[in-house]
Amino acid sequence: MLDVFLFATLNGLVTGLLLFMLASGLTLIFSMMGVLNFAHASFYMLGAYFAYSISSYLGFWIGLLLAPVIVGILGALVERYGLRHVHRHGHVAELVFTFGLAFLIEELVQFFWGRDTKNYQQPDILDFPLFTLFGQEFSAYRGFMIFISVLIFIGLYYLLTRSRIGIIIQAAITHPHTVASLGHNVPLIFMGVFGVGSALAGVAGVIAGPVLTTFPGMAVVLGSIVFVIVVIGGLGSLAGAFIASLLIGLLQSYAIASDLGMQDLLALLGVSFERSHPLNDLWTLTLPQIAPILPFLLLVLVLIFRPTGLLGKREE
């Protein structure tokens, strides 16, 4: 039992940190510009596909370096020549714009790379078990994923709270006009933040691609869950996104690892049903069966009991 618990924790950590890389960019963009970027997970997918193409010529590591840069530049261009124009027409227009962009990117990916799953593999150098516990291997690549994610969290945290750019960004969030009148180029800051946010999603794509498989549906699978994290963590809160990411990663992992189900609950209450009961499907439901939809359940609960999210500061 201990081995399952231990590995469930590690798995949850890997998923959680990966989700954080996506959520951090999304929440940063939201807090700066008030834009809920529906295309965020599409940049994640682009990261994986660019890295796949680059790695087939120049190897994984060049892909890891180049792909996020390309995605970041693309993101910045989208902000400069797309969002900035749409921005004048209000938030609904922005929302619709990013929504459309997500579809567009998915179609483009299918157009250029095809609809098949891509054979994007982890580098050979990390293709060994980092350690073996209770007969289970923990791959070095997963360790590497944890390492990169933590590095990015620390870097981002330092950048936003300790550096001059971070101070300007934080000021631009709350007082964009004051920052502008102090001589800072606020549109440029916006463009930079959007670019960096997209690049972060790109990094997540590059390192997740080999593990979670690179296929045209990868953005859709992850897209909804990232929004759940940002809302649960509190819109615009980086720390909130971090906590929510880990929470959801671990929650799912533990739920899958557990063998509990409705039957245990019913047994506790001393009730039992025949197999022929019309609601048999409900009575035999197990926790692993519903694990992937638990985050959405959590989202509903958070929205009911704490609409601002865990660490959200948004006042109505």
Binding site: Q136, V211, P288, I293
Partner: peptide, 21 residues
């Protein structure tokens, strides 16, 4: 004997942990 939602699972590693165990 495990079921998972179709097309919803991002990472199968947690399931595999159980298979190994």
């Amino acid at each position: 004997n495990e079921f998972h939602p179709i097309g919803q699972v991002k990472d199968f590693t947690p399931y595999v942990t159980k298979i190994v165990a």
